[in-house]
């Protein structure tokens, strides 16, 4: 355990140093961090699921690779993507950052592509915040955070030169929504009511659902046939 902590500390330090260097270089150009490189990363070599996993003992066989600092920005970002609302918890409260760690650490080609995008993207987000706001992303004011997101979050309004960060954001949005809506809290929010075994015939639409579609179909001038 101690050894792990030291390893993480060293990696965080190195990352911080590298980040500082990159920001310094780019700031000199006076054009934000948009030209930052998105270097390829070494593919993860670890055991995968295999062709015959044991369903009675489900495990994630590969080691997790994100640093504490990366997880912290991830938590901040996923909660901006889909903030909690009323009784609905935020993504970070239902384990979405941990899932993203599981995802980007997986030893598969698709997940490797996402890892390159996301790890570099998180770094970009931090660097961009330091340039614009003088502080890392998680310390920036809410308005300063959303100002960055507004440049990369909308398909038709991506700021010039920020295509790669926009791609990163799109992937994070997709992973966040997927991870959140596959939880019980996500089911409650979206209204998934299945995975509930029943006896007898399939119940079919509720009277309310049936009346609704009947109205829709007839308003279109089409013929409704009851289920």
């Amino acid at each position: 355990m101690t050894k792990d902590l030291i390893t993480i500390d060293r990696r965080v330090t190195l990352k911080w140093l590298m980040g500082t260097l990159a920001v310094g270089q780019l700031a000199a150009c006076g054009d934000g961090a948009k030209g930052i490189s998105w270097p390829e990363m070494k593919a993860i070599e670890a055991a995968g699921i295999g062709k015959d996993p044991d369903f009675s003992n489900i495990t994630v066989p590969w080691p997790l690779t994100m640093t504490a600092a990366e997880l912290e920005i991830t938590a901040e970002l996923v909660d901006l993507i889909l903030p909690g609302e009323g009784d609905i918890p935020s993504p970070s409260a239902v384990g979405v950052p941990a899932f993203i760690n599981e995802w980007v650490s997986a030893p598969y080609p698709d997940q490797h592509k996402d890892r390159v995008l996301i790890i570099n993207g998180l770094k970009w987000l931090d660097d961009e915040s330091k340039i614009r706001n003088g502080v890392p992303f998680i310390r920036a004011e809410a308005a300063a955070q959303t100002a960055i997101l507004d440049d990369i979050a909308f398909k038709d309004k991506v700021k010039e030169g920020l295509d790669k960060p926009a791609e990163f954001f799109g992937r994070m949005r997709s992973l966040t929504l997927g991870a959140f809506y596959t939880t019980r809290e996500g089911w409650a929010d979206i209204g998934y009511m299945g995975n509930t075994p029943g006896t007898g015939d399939y119940a079919g639409p509720t009277p309310e659902a049936a009346a609704h579609i009947k109205g829709v179909i007839e308003a279109m001038g089409l013929k409704y046939t009851p289920a």
Binding site: P83, A153, K155, S174, G178, G194
Partner: peptide
Amino acid sequence: FGDPGMGVGGGLDGYGA
């Protein structure tokens, strides 16, 4: 209304509420 999967956010845009 199937069980949501990793594709639930496909084709969506923006963020927040």
